[in-house]
Design a protein around this nucleic acid. Structure first.
Lengths: 196, 196
DNA sequence: TTGTAAAAGTACCAAACAGTATCTTTTATG
DNA sequence: CATAAAAGATACTGTTTGGTACTTTTACAA
């Protein structure tokens, strides 16, 4: 890997961490170059504007990480209901990338940027669509394999589950701990079992 | 109502609208005084700082509006499952105060402010706790009245439902329309019926 | 090894920002 | 209707911000 590519990636990763913990608007370029030990010259060599960097974070850091989580969790497991539960359990309780007190990075980005940046919205929408698609396919397959009742609407369930995930991260953020995660996961299991 | 009180309320309401549509950080005090047709002198006569105003918005605009919605919807209805469904249907589809494309104001505030303002977090947490409490009580009463199965865990269900609500607003925001709301509501109904 | 384009450093700018100091006008009340 | 305090207007400040212009250093292919 070329040195300049490493620099670029360092900026993206460090900037992601700062934005994930402090928000996009409250993270200044000066903050980013301070933590990366770089200068404005380096930053603006790699990115035309701050927003171009933000978009790169979504597409090059967030997107691969999230879609990988979804695809790996959902495609390999036999029982789709277990798969969905384990995916959520993993995202909430085990993923080292995601921290309770900072919520879901995709959701954070959405909330903060959507009102004023259309490109961000589009990029985030794509991630969501990809994740949604994988989950719908998983459920449809589960219906064929007899794991899930034939009357179940895959898209509805997906939207419902994804929503509940985004929302529960709000609780975690507000409470600044994962106390709400356990009752959430128990209820999610009950709900998923009702789809058999 | 005294004139100065009207001015204060006007600032809060107009500022709320701006922040709801554009975000807190992207709404400047200059923006607020421009839309209110007031001046800095007036603004800083009523509020010591921008954050003091933000806190006042949460406590004096958001809190009463949301808790009123929850209490009125949940306390008056006979069947608690219908009550919860109608509350969500109302918040998503009928409430003129809330717009699809801008998400849930409480959730927006939470996402944007939590990382850097503890007072905001506390105030938002209080609103959430109040709403949660009302819903838990409603469910408990429903268990006593036979509307809901005795084995149902009221707190779990409340957290699950509230999460799903917050999350679905994210979908609406991302898509910039309420297409996702209908499948969500259908699935919510199916889920609530499973609690009988 | 060396020439050169790529990469990074330095110093600056104009605009936007929250907030203040001071002055003027309303408004409520004796 | 006089007057003082409340409410609001005006003009400013120091700082932070994203971004730029220009210079220097580094990496790497020939």
């Amino acid at each position: 890997m070329k040195k300049s590519e490493i620099t670029r990636l360092t900026i993206l990763q460090k900037a992601f961490e700062l934005i994930y913990t402090n928000g996009y608007q409250t993270t200044s370029i000066d903050d980013i170059i301070a933590t990366t030990q770089l200068t404005k010259g380096a930053f603006y060599y790699h990115f035309k504007t701050k927003d171009e960097m933000g978009l790169a974070i979504i597409n090059e850091i967030l997107k691969p990480s999230l879609t990988k989580s979804f695809i790996e969790s959902l495609k390999n497991e036999q029982n789709p209901l277990d798969a969905i539960y384990n995916l959520m359990d993993n995202l909430l309780m085990k993923n080292a990338f995601l921290k309770v007190e900072y919520g879901c990075p995709a959701s954070n980005f959405t909330q903060e940027m959507t009102p004023w940046n259309e490109n961000f919205t589009k990029a985030l929408n794509e991630i969501t669509k990809q994740c949604t698609k994988v989950m719908i396919t998983t459920i449809e397959k589960g219906k064929e394999n007899g794991f899930i009742g034939k009357e179940v609407n895959a898209k509805q369930v997906t939207i419902f589950v994804m929503s509940s995930y985004w929302g529960i991260r709000n609780f975690g953020k507000l409470d600044n701990n994962n106390k709400a995660y356990l009752p959430y996961l128990r209820q999610l299991k009950i709900y998923l079992n009702s789809l058999k």
